[in-house]
Nucleic acid binder design. Structure first.
Lengths: 194, 194
DNA sequence: AGCTAAACTGGACGTCGTACAGCTCAACGT
DNA sequence: ACGTTGAGCTGTACGACGTCCAGTTTAGCT
C-alpha cells in the first residue's frame, strides 16, 4: 500500500524521508515491473513521489544504483549446510542462478561488471573459495575455478533474458541445461580430489 | 585516408554514396576507438560526414546496427580443418573467443541477444552441430551442448571487458583460464563417445 | 524525357542523466 | 533557548541521445 502521490506535493526544503534502502528497493520494483529499459532515475523518483534529482542525495549516480540493485539480488543466498564440497558448489551456483533469474535483463550489466563487487558477491566468492580450499585447491587454481563457475552461471542467467522476440526457452529446460554443464565443470575442477 | 569533412557540406538532396557495409564498418571503428558508450548514431554519422538521420536509410534503428556489428565480428572465423571432433570444437570456440575479444564491451549486448541471430552466428552453430552429430550427439542433447559452449564462451569474453577500474586481468591468463574450463566442458560433453 | 523511389538535409520532439542554485527543516553545540 | 550548519529536498536547465517529419535532389527505370 505504497502511497503513490503525484510529485509537486512538496515545496523546496521539505523532506520526503527517503533512505538509501528505499531507493534501491524501489529501483528493484521498477525493474521487476518494466524491465531494464524502464529503470530510469525519473521512474524511480516518480514512484517515490520526489523530484528526479532527489535520488542523488542517496546514490552517487545511476551506475551506483544499478550496482546496488545488483548486489541486493544476491542477498537471499545462504551458505549450503553440507560437508560435501561438490554439493556446496553445486547448490550455491544453482541458488545464484535462481536469484539472478529474477532479473534476467539485468544480467548484461551484471556481466559487464564482472559479477558485481558488492559485499554479497564477495561473500559468495568467499564461500566458494573456502569450499575449494578444503579439497586442496588454492592460489591461481582457485581463482581459475571460481572464475569459470561465475562466468558460466551469470552467462546462463543472461542467456535466459534473450530477445523479446522468439522462443523464451522454457525455464525447466534451462535449469536442466544449466545443471548438465555445471556437472561437467565441477567434475573437471574436482578431478581426482574428492 | 578517409576524407573527414565536417557535416553541412552537402545540401538537401545531395547524396553521400553510403552503403550499409560502410555504415557497419564505421560503427565498428567508433566502437574500437571509444567503447560501447561512444557507439552513437550521431558519432557514426559524424565519421561519415552525414547527418545523423541519414543512417536510417541503411539501417532500421540502432538495435539493428548493433546486431549487424555483432555478426560482422564473427565473419573471420573459419571452419577448423580437422577430423577430430574435440579439436574442432576446441578450436572454433577459441577462435570465437579471440574474435569477440576485439570488442569486449559489446558482449553484454551480445549475450542479451543470445549470441546474435545473424548468418555468421548461425554458420558457427551449424559447424558445431555437425561436429557433435559425428559422435552421435543429436536432438536436445546437441542443443544443450551447444548452448553450454556458447554461453561459456560469450561469458568469458564479456568478463574480459570488466569495469574500467581495477585490474583488467592479463590476456594470456584469461585465455589459459578459458582453455581449462573449455577442456572440462568438452570432456563432459564427449564422455565415452570418442 | 518524364516519373518515381531512394538518399539525403534541416529541424524538431521527447527522454534521458545530471549539475546548479536556492529553500527549509532537523540536529547539535553553546 | 537559540543561532548555526549541513543534509534533503525542489525548480530549472543543459547537453546528448534515438528517432520522426517534411522537404529537396538525384539515380535509375520506362
Amino acid at each position: 500500500m505504497n502511497a503513490r502521490r503525484h510529485p509537486g506535493q512538496r515545496y523546496p526544503g521539505q523532506r520526503a524521508g527517503l533512505t538509501k534502502e528505499q531507493v534501491i528497493a524501489t529501483a528493484n520494483d521498477v525493474l521487476a515491473d518494466g524491465g531494464f529499459g524502464a529503470l530510469t532515475m525519473r521512474a524511480v523518483a516518480e514512484r517515490l513521489a520526489v523530484a528526479p534529482n532527489a535520488l542523488y542525495s542517496h546514490v552517487a549516480n545511476k551506475t551506483e544504483l544499478v550496482d546496488e540493485v545488483l548486489d541486493a539480488t544476491l542477498r537471499t543466498i545462504r551458505e549450503p549446510a553440507t560437508d560435501d564440497v561438490e554439493a556446496v558448489l553445486r547448490e550455491i551456483m544453482a541458488e545464484t542462478l535462481t536469484a539472478l533469474l529474477r532479473h534476467p535483463d539485468l544480467m548484461p550489466a551484471f556481466l559487464a561488471r564482472q559479477g558485481s563487487r558488492g559485499p554479497h558477491a564477495r561473500r559468495l566468492g568467499d564461500i566458494m573459495a573456502a569450499a575449494l580450499e578444503r579439497v586442496g585447491i588454492t592460489g591461481s587454481d582457485a581463482v581459475e575455478a571460481r572464475r569459470v563457475l561465475i562466468v558460466y552461471t551469470i552467462g546462463f542467467a543472461a542467456f535466459a533474458a534473450g530477445p523479446p522476440e522468439g522462443n523464451p526457452v522454457p525455464l525447466d529446460e534451462l535449469q536442466h541445461n544449466f545443471a548438465s554443464g555445471l556437472q561437467w565443470l565441477l567434475a573437471g575442477i574436482l578431478a581426482g580430489r574428492c
